[in-house]
Write a protein that binds this DNA or RNA. Structure first.
Lengths: 148, 148
DNA sequence: CATATTAGTTAGTTTTGCTAACTAATGATA
DNA sequence: TATCATTAGTTAGCAAAACTAACTAATATG
């Protein structure tokens, strides 16, 4: 391999490694954002619950990529906090459906800005080119994380 | 506010929101990768310790963006596992320097592939995304997490 | 009808983060 | 130089968020 080719070559391992590190650190940052009584996992689950409209517990677990027991406990805490309600399914009595309460909807609205504050600030500070790139970055990350 | 400026703000919020969600999920995915006895935080700390060469505990905490007490405990566990050693600093006796042991170096080599397997596979499958473009996007992600 | 599968829960553990409060060492200054 | 402030790291205690293993209850299948 010529040195020119070598210099230009970006190895997958290299990109993967940096990507992993960057995701880990940014995730730490984002989790530190205080949401006034609502934990990061709760906030995330609340949002996906609202978007899916009466999802089952299993659907929520799959969507959030966590195991069912973890979702059970998460929902238990959220129900206790009055953010969501468990409802029985008519057809299949094994199934637990989750609905966002009025209070949950209010909280959802309240925290939306807070959750995204850190990233918003940084995006706003960027020029047009970087924002464009950020949009492509999101698409890439979504594909990498959502696949199977 | 002009409608153009308004459109921008909406778009930033949208990108921010999707980015946050994508990072959270991808992070969960990456943490699930089994590393045979070494936890994700340990793996990450081991790598940065090797790269910085005899960093102080505080330097490690800053690099990993966690608080000093968390790093103290992490290093304690890693020392117990024989991956690193604490050494005193000659000049300043408050300072604890951390060195990777022979075993730590071996483990580092062993897990490098495993850590990045998930992302590697997916990046390789995306042949329409060229490596340099991906690399630039990762740089942007690094900026989003490391700034300030 | 018996058995297998599926949905969710319970229980217990681990990892990883935090803050508050502490010790020990160093630096600055009156 | 004695005192006070700052810095580095630790200890203790807490909480969130994830896991697996083992369970119950309901449904589907052969």
């Amino acid at each position: 391999m010529t040195s020119a080719a070598n210099a230009h070559q970006v190895s997958d391992l290299d990109v993967a490694s940096r990507l992993r590190t960057a995701v880990t650190r940014l995730n730490r940052r984002l989790r530190q954002q205080s949401l006034g009584g609502i934990s990061p996992a709760q906030a995330s689950t609340l949002a996906i619950t609202a978007r899916l409209e009466n999802p089952t517990l299993g659907e929520l677990a799959r969507a959030e990529q966590i195991q069912p027991p973890t979702m059970t406990r998460l929902i238990a805490g959220m129900e206790e906090a009055g953010l969501v309600e468990r409802c029985a399914d008519d057809r299949d009595r094994r199934i637990v459906r989750v609905a966002v309460t009025q209070k949950g909807r209010g909280e959802l609205k309240r925290i939306r800005t807070m959750k995204n504050e850190y990233l918003m600030t940084r995006l706003e500070a960027m020029d047009e080119v970087d924002r464009e790139a950020a949009s492509r970055l999101v698409t890439l990350l979504e594909r990498l994380g959502d696949e199977r």
